[in-house]
Simulated scan of single mutants.
Amino acid sequence: MDEATIAPAIVRMSYPALFRSMLRDERFLRVWISQAHDQKNKVHEMTEFSGIEKLLALEEIKLLKARRDRAVDTKDWDLYLSLHAPDHVSHNDGYERWNNAQEMISNVKKLLDETKISVHHSHTPEITFESPVKAKGIWAMEDNIFWKQGDEDHWLHGFGFYHETYEKRDGKWLFTSRQLKRTHVLTSAGTKGVLQP
């Protein structure tokens, strides 16, 4: 039983007079019917999404993530951009929100320019499907970034989790949002604000 039917059922059993008055409230009925209808559509969508289709979609999203990590570390910015929906939104710890894919890639290219070497690893995905064409995921991550300040070698070693959403558009899975939540960061002594866009 879903939320749209559980709450009214509890009220009906525990407070019958209150439930009868709720049924006379036109606003309550509209909301209740709408929620029940939305839930029914969602269940219908997911029952049409077979186990094999779900496994294939899962593998496609994993490939999407692998290509993203490779693209950023090899500085293949055309590939990187192609993996994101135009309306992609990014909001990472320590940075302002980037409201579209062009704004995101402009900032990432500045952060990880030719003076820096980056190594990104993403692990242990938790992918859940909202529908056959919408999903969200959490990935454990680790990154290493290396650069020089004058003649000195410097580095950053970060840990955390990517929180992402994906949509299948025109037959292709794309990133629609990403938020990096760091849990720990190590840096070399004397590191200055090198990762500011």
Rank of each mutant, 00 (worst) to 15 (best):
R12H: 13
T74N: 15
A4L: 06
V31N: 04
F146P: 05
V11H: 12
D170W: 00
S177M: 03
P132Y: 13
F146E: 08
H123F: 11
W139A: 10
A57M: 05
Y162S: 00
V11A: 15
D87L: 09
Y95E: 10
I6P: 02
R27Y: 11
A85G: 01
R67Q: 03
K42M: 13
Y95D: 09
E45P: 02
R12Q: 15
E59C: 04
T176V: 15
M13K: 15
R169E: 02
M104I: 12
I10Y: 12
I33G: 02
D113M: 06
W155Q: 14
S118N: 12
D2T: 15
A189L: 06
I145R: 10
A17L: 13
Q35V: 06
D69H: 06
K181I: 10
V11E: 12
F146D: 09
L64G: 01
Y162R: 01
P132K: 11
M46N: 08
L18E: 12
E167V: 00
K40H: 08
A85D: 05
E53Y: 07
A4M: 07
D69I: 05
Q179R: 15
R30E: 14
S106P: 10
K172Q: 05
H120A: 03
V31M: 08
T176F: 08
R68D: 00
K42S: 14
G190A: 08
D76E: 01
G94V: 07
A7Y: 13
I117G: 07
N107V: 14
N41H: 10
N100Q: 05
S106E: 15
D93W: 10
D153R: 09
V185M: 15
K181D: 10
F146G: 06
W155A: 14
K40L: 10
R169L: 04
G137I: 01
F28Q: 03
L111V: 10
W32S: 07
R12C: 11
S82W: 00
E126L: 04
Y95A: 09
T165F: 01
K110C: 09
I105A: 00
V108Y: 06
I6R: 09
H44P: 03
R178Y: 03
Y162Q: 00
Y95C: 05
W32V: 03
A189E: 11
D93Q: 15
M1N: 12
Q149E: 15
Q39I: 09
Y95Q: 10
